[in-house]
């Protein structure tokens, strides 16, 4: 089972990502902040959840999955949201599932396709 981490907010996220060494397999799931009911405000993120759970079952034991709650709806909808403008995260869509330190990412309903998640986990080219 993959090693899971949970982070909230932009500054916390970047501070946390410094913990990883460049050769580690780190995957990041960007989704909307959770509401009091425990579900994200972003319906697509909620819908993707079970597929991501399923897809990561086969992930290597040494792989990390960092689940980051980017923020509430107004924070995300602001086109100057730092997760959008930062040249590393450059988010356009929630949810986004990305392999850290690569250009590989699945956006929106691509996160609901098990075979694409598998490809993200197994693809060796960078």
């Amino acid at each position: 089972m993959v090693l899971r981490h949970h982070i909230e907010g932009y500054e916390n996220f970047f501070k946390f990502m410094k913990n990883f060494k460049p050769n580690e397999s780190v995957y990041v799931l960007y989704s909307g902040k959770k509401l009091p009911n425990g579900k994200s405000w972003c319906p697509d993120c909620v819908e993707a959840e079970p597929f991501i759970e399923e897809g990561f079952k086969t992930a290597s034991e040494s792989a990390h999955l960092v689940e980051v709650e980017v923020g509430d709806r107004p924070f995300w909808k602001d086109l100057n949201c730092p997760f959008r403008t930062n040249s590393t995260t450059k988010l356009r869509v929630l949810p986004t599932l990305a392999k850290w330190n690569t250009q590989k990412r699945l956006e929106g309903d691509q996160c609901q396709k098990i075979d694409l998640i598998e490809m993200l986990l197994t693809d060796e080219d960078d």
């Binding site: 250009q103 590989k104 990412r105 699945l106 396709k113 694409l116 490809m119 693809d123 080219d125």
Partner: peptide, 23 residues
């Protein structure tokens, strides 16, 4: 980085369209 993102998007597109790709 731009090229690598295009490489990846191409991979995703092939997979989505069910074109089998072999390196």
């Amino acid at each position: 980085n731009h090229i690598k993102s295009v490489n990846w998007v191409t991979r995703v597109e092939l997979r989505t369209k069910k074109i089998e790709y072999f390196n």
